[in-house]
């Protein structure tokens, strides 16, 4: 049920992206994806801005222009907690982003909805119907994992930015309650189309 819900979420996000010709204009992100910072992994994703507006603030010496947007960002991540488990995460973030036009610095705040499949490390032994013990590789359980995210980054050149993102998340219906997870991402956002033009 939960898996279907997330498949639907990702499909909606992708179809919206396709309708808006996203691939010509929006970045692909690739990042180190650290569960509890030090359990290493990799995450890839993209971002679709579905509302953009510009705001100007008058200062004494100059005018600061900020581009603001509301975005949807589907991502896929994978990490390894050695000798414990491997995690496969399908995630969609819904967020707000503001970019200083002059410096390229940006901040983003988002809420994520994810499905995390936790694959047990090593072999998992299960009891067969006949009482025998059978081995099961790739044994996993899937949990619904909402999250809160804070991202900061900087556009270095048109079509190329670095970013770091902090996430606090919770696996729901985990045992009889919830878990607390935290993630750190450090990565790059690349708009291949813009990069090739520059």
């Amino acid at each position: 049920m939960k898996t279907s819900f997330f498949t639907l979420l990702i499909l909606i996000a992708c179809s919206t992206i396709a309708q808006n010709d996203f691939w010509e204009r929006k970045p692909i992100s690739i990042s180190y994806y650290g569960h509890y910072y030090f359990h290493p992994g990799l995450k890839i994703g993209t971002q679709y801005n579905w509302r953009n507006w510009e705001k100007e603030k008058e200062r004494k010496k100059r005018t600061i222009t900020k581009n603001k947007s509301l975005f949807i960002s589907p991502q896929v991540g994978f990490y390894v907690h050695p000798k414990n488990h491997n995690g496969l995460v399908f995630n969609v973030d819904f967020g707000y982003q503001k970019i200083k036009k002059r410096s390229g610095w940006y901040q983003a705040y988002s809420v994520g909805l994810a499905s995390i499949s936790q694959f047990n490390a090593g072999t998992t032994y299960v009891e067969g119907n006949d009482g025998s013990i059978k081995t099961k590789n790739l044994a996993s359980r899937t949990y619904f994992m909402p999250s809160l995210n804070l991202e900061i980054g900087k556009e270095m050149t048109p079509g190329f930015a670095w970013f770091t993102k902090f996430t606090i998340a919770s696996k729901l219906f985990y045992n009889t309650g919830v878990s607390v997870e935290t993630f750190l991402e450090i990565g790059l956002k690349i708009d291949l189309n813009l990069l090739s033009k520059s």
Binding site: F78, N120, A121, G122
Partner: peptide, 25 residues
């Protein structure tokens, strides 16, 4: 992903074992 998951060592009794497994019950 499959390749990563399938990297499992054979069970061997060594002097310095360091391994994990799960039981599902």
């Amino acid at each position: 992903v499959l390749a990563l998951f399938s990297c499992q060592k054979e069970v061997a009794l060594t002097e310095q074992m360091e391994e994990s497994f799960y039981v599902r019950t």
